[in-house]
């Protein structure tokens, strides 16, 4: 299951496709202090990323996937008040 929803935490794993976007958004709409676990997530559909940007849930676990961890997570942290400008070494 790419998307598992509990009362306060959404666990995203494997490949999160566009099919998961609607339930995720519906859950984010009704959940007051949502937490999202991305640890086992390998891919996030753009629509899911967008939803996380809009609703700004707390990201409780960093993804193990390299691309998500190094490139996408900073974007999420940046928008939710974390360190805005992550360091990235020039090549």
């Amino acid at each position: 299951m790419p998307l598992e929803l509990s009362e306060t935490t959404a666990t995203l794993s494997d490949v999160v496709t566009v099919d998961e976007v609607e339930p995720l958004v519906a859950w984010l709409r009704i959940t007051s202090k949502p937490k999202v676990n991305l640890r086992r997530c390998n891919h996030l559909h753009t629509g899911a990323l967008q939803a996380l940007l809009l609703f700004q849930p707390r990201i409780t676990s960093s993804p193990t996937d390299a691309f998500l961890a190094t490139q996408v997570l900073p974007l999420l942290r940046g928008s939710s008040g974390g360190p805005v400008l992550p360091e990235s070494e020039p090549p």
């Binding site: 976007v21 609607e22 629509g47 967008q50």
Partner: peptide, 8 residues
């Protein structure tokens, strides 16, 4: 919010 409209 329309979750299927790409805004970013």
């Amino acid at each position: 919010y329309d979750e299927y409209a790409c805004l970013i």
